[in-house]
């Protein structure tokens, strides 16, 4: 948890501020507001990934409960609220619906010395990066956007995309790598 993060700081965008209020004050009003915003999106995400209505709502409950319990691990320097909740929804879905474990790196897991903190140039507000990223995703050529959509929303690894779409694997990889180059520009990096 970043020391700079403060739920009273008006420059932090509101969803992030709500999460910090849950983390610091166990604020139920803030939690309700987060629920109103994210529950229908998490449900939409689960439905897209093939869950039926009941399973999707169970996932929503699971995710929102995890948000309440893990809010203290949210760091607005590292991720936007949507990104943080996306990772929870992704992992809980793998666990519940695909019934596999999700091998994850924990914050203390680094095998390198002294790289626990994000690099200084990454302390930019993650929420600002998100708006640049949104623009880049919106501008992707359709065939590149499709590869992203299939991976995030249809649980397809790139080799499955190749088989199911009847596209050579090399073409899928090329489209994906082109999309990744564009996405990286949203973070101000040359790929």
């Amino acid at each position: 948890m970043s020391l700079q993060a403060d739920s009273n700081d008006p420059t932090v965008p509101s969803l992030e501020r709500l999460l910090l209020a849950v983390a610091q004050g166990r604020d139920q009003q803030a939690f309700r507001a987060l629920f109103q915003h994210f529950a229908p999106r998490v449900k939409g995400y689960a439905r897209k990934l093939g869950a039926d209505d009941g399973a999707a709502e169970e996932l929503v409950q699971d995710v929102m409960l995890t948000v309440w319990q893990r809010a203290d691990t949210f760091d607005p320097d590292l991720a936007s609220a949507a990104t943080w909740i996306y990772t929870i929804a992704r992992n809980r879905r793998i666990d519940r619906i695909r019934q596999e474990r999700r091998p994850e790196l924990h914050p203390d897991d680094s095998m390198l010395d002294g790289d626990g903190a994000p690099p200084p140039d990454h302390q930019v507000q993650a929420a600002q990066e998100a708006s640049r990223l949104r623009a880049v995703i919106g501008d992707l050529p359709p065939e590149q956007a499709e590869v992203l959509r299939l991976a995030y929303y249809e649980d397809k690894v790139h080799s499955e995309i190749s088989v199911e779409q009847g596209i050579p694997l090399g073409t899928v990889k090329t489209r994906l790598r082109l999309a990744l180059v564009r996405l990286r520009r949203a973070f101000g990096e040359e790929a």
Partner: peptide, 29 residues
């Protein structure tokens, strides 16, 4: 790439949840 997932989560077609779902979660809290 997880930030990309966050953006896509914001853009996914939202599906209304049942009326009692928030109360069910609040009770579990």
């Amino acid at each position: 790439l997880e930030a990309c997932g966050g953006v896509l989560l914001e853009e996914v077609a939202a599906e209304p949840v049942s009326d009692g779902l928030l109360d069910a979660v609040l009770a579990k809290l």
